[in-house]
Design a protein around this nucleic acid. Structure first.
Length: 565
RNA sequence: GCGCCCGUAGCUCAGCAGGAUAGAGCAACGGUUUCCUAAACCGUAGGUCAGACGUUCAAAUCGUCUCGGGCGCACCA
């Protein structure tokens, strides 16, 4: 428990007959800092004491005596408000940040625990497009958040490298692939073949049968089919990796769906063995009617397996391989039902870890006039978006800071950062309408705003040129703009924990915006570097602490924090 | 039809394990640079928190219903 809250709780414990735990739960933070730093609402007491909350607050505030680190206790309406000793508070917070440095915000609740995170997971032979962004970024941020808390994280890219579409692709490739495509085939070529297949298949349905045959050959291990499939995969992975590098996204394993082919028979046998299956309309299903869900299909009429089957096999494999404490799937909310079914089947199979599988869903990304679709070629390629973002930032740098060193690197950090921040900033839950101008807006509450604030702080520290010290007079950090910032910085570890608990990176984005606007307000009202040595030293410590918090926060989101821009 | 998600300022969103006066950014208008990066800051204007009922001392927040939008509901992933 927080040192200051602890003191308040023990004060209240003496003044009331409430248990410490109950008091702690009631403590809140007033909406306005002028009211106090912490507040104790008296509504709950008014029932037992049969007095108005206001009267209780007044009486309590008179009985309680402020002792260090609490400086004042005051009744405000139905609340007893507590003011902390600002100097002690700031000393506690700033020293802590100074000592922890890059580790400020880190925790140990995850030590010894493993968490598997499945994110990005694109389909082979298609481009990464903007609608793939969310899974990759949210997953990557959650990975960093949990790592910060001491968890061992395993990031898995569950590539869509199996399924009937590969039969389609083989057919198309054999039919329309030119000499040229065979030699220097790109994802664009593959995607065109895929689109062409669907156009032609509408006129000539026999092609679908051909595709199914090829997929069956592939499943049977046909050499020619397998070679082509591997070729498609290599091409795609190479291109994916380029984009992951641009975004700075890391995976510990690329394990596609095909990997589970050899295990799937055993998985189905195990489900059978538990007596969970039955045949329905010639397909093998797990009936989930008791649980108000449609059945989970394990095997199609033509004997081939499905997505759900492979997901169940994959879950078993991951449990065996990583022995995770928790497994997270960062996949769009349109697959909610699918995961509910898969988790239910795992539970029915008797796995006690089934309830430690979590589907972290997120809202759809679409255009103003409807859904994005690779099949119709209606997408914005991720690469194009990133290149455009960097390009626009490059122009802004030319305009505002032409003498900047490392322009290229900075343009990259800021351009890509803007895209990352924009995507992570809204709660996962909400659908996103893609709009170029919005995705590439750099004013106001954006990535560049955070990074710019950070760069300015670095600039002050550079100008100061001396080592930062915690040996300062903390009495000098008492102005409103200053102390609000100190309090804000103290919340960082708690924000990370909350972000982990709710799988919600946006909490960190919003927190950083808060820190930056508090910093900018401070920056605009107070001069850091001045003739007054003591004051300068004190403010420098605050500047350095803020810089550290912003940097740590940005890194968790997967963004760089350039020192100049 | 059934299920899940969303609805807060003109636009994009915070706030939602009930609590003190509903907050930001963009856009609009007005101001701040002999001074640490103006990619910043300050001010003005802008609200029936979709609507109704209910629970509660207290509801944007919890419950029920209605409306509007999205998604999903057997052989795609």
């Amino acid at each position: 428990m927080d040192y200051f809250i602890k003191n308040i709780v023990s004060l209240l414990n003496e003044g009331t007959n409430l248990q410490e735990n109950d008091i702690e739960k009631l403590i809140e933070i007033p909406p306005d800092f002028k009211m106090g730093d912490y507040a104790f609402p008296c509504y709950a007491l008014s029932k037992t004491l049969k007095k108005s909350p206001n009267a209780i607050a007044t009486e309590l505030s008179k009985t309680l005596h402020a002792i260090s680190p609490i400086s004042e206790i005051r009744a405000v309406g139905p609340y007893v408000n507590f003011f902390v000793d600002k100097a002690i508070f700031s000393e506690t917070v700033l020293k802590n940040i100074y000592e922890e440095k890059d580790r400020y915000g880190h925790g140990n609740i995850g030590i010894g625990k493993t968490i598997v995170i499945d994110y990005s997971s694109p389909n082979i032979a298609k481009h990464l497009a903007v609608h793939h962004l969310r899974s990759a970024l949210i997953g990557s941020a959650i990975y960093n958040i949990y790592k910060t808390l001491g968890y061992k994280c395993v990031g898995i890219n569950h590539l869509g490298d199996w399924g009937t579409q590969f039969g389609q692709l083989i057919v198309a490739y054999k039919k329309w692939g030119t000499e040229d495509t065979h030699k220097s085939c790109t994802v664009t070529d593959l995607n065109n073949l895929y689109v062409k297949f669907h156009q032609e298949a509408e006129k000539n349905p026999r092609m679908e049968d051909e595709a199914r045959e090829w997929f069956k050959k592939l499943e049977a291990g046909d050499f020619g089919a397998k070679e082509l499939w591997q070729h498609f995969k290599d091409i795609s992975l190479k291109e994916f990796q380029k984009i992951y590098d641009m975004l700075g996204i890391h995976f510990d394993a690329f394990i596609g769906e095909s990997f589970y082919n050899t295990m799937i028979e055993d998985t189905v046998a195990r489900i059978n063995g538990k007596g969970l299956t039955r045949i329905s309309e010639q397909a093998l299903i797990v009936d989930l009617e008791h649980y108000d869900m449609p059945p989970c299909l394990l095997r199609k009429r033509d004997e081939t397996t499905l997505y759900a089957t492979r997901d169940i096999a994959a879950a078993e494999y991951r449990k065996k391989t990583y022995n995770f404490g928790k497994m997270i799937y960062v996949v769009g909310s349109e697959q909610k039902l699918h995961f509910k079914q898969v988790f239910k089947v795992l539970e029915l199979m008797g796995y006690d870890w089934a309830n430690r599988c979590v589907h972290v869903d997120f809202g759809l990304m679409k255009f103003k006039d409807g859904k994005m679709s690779t099949r119709k070629g209606k997408v914005v390629l991720l690469e194009d978006l990133l290149i455009e973002a960097v390009e626009r930032i490059r122009k802004i740098i030319e305009e505002k800071n032409p003498s900047l060193e490392n322009k290229e690197a900075v343009a990259n950090d800021v351009g890509i950062g803007a895209v990352i921040f924009a995507d992570l900033c809204t709660k996962r839950n909400k659908d996103v309408v893609f709009d170029w101008d919005e995705a590439l807006n750099f004013d106001g509450e954006t990535g560049p705003y955070i990074q710019y604030t950070h760069a300015r702080l670095c600039s002050i520290l550079r100008k100061y040129g001396k080592p930062v010290t915690t040996d300062i007079n903390h009495e000098l950090l008492k102005e409103d703009e200053t102390f609000i910032l100190v309090k804000n910085l103290s919340q960082f570890p708690m924000i990370i924990q909350k972000a982990a608990e709710f799988y919600e990176p946006s909490l960190i984005c919003n927190y950083l915006i808060d820190v930056c606007s508090n910093l900018n307000r401070f920056y605009n009202t107070h001069r850091v570097l001045s003739e007054d040595d003591d004051l300068t030293k004190a403010r420098i410590l605050l500047i350095d602490s803020t810089r550290q918090v912003i940097k740590n926060g940005l890194n968790i989101l997967g963004m760089h924090a350039p020192e100049q821009m």
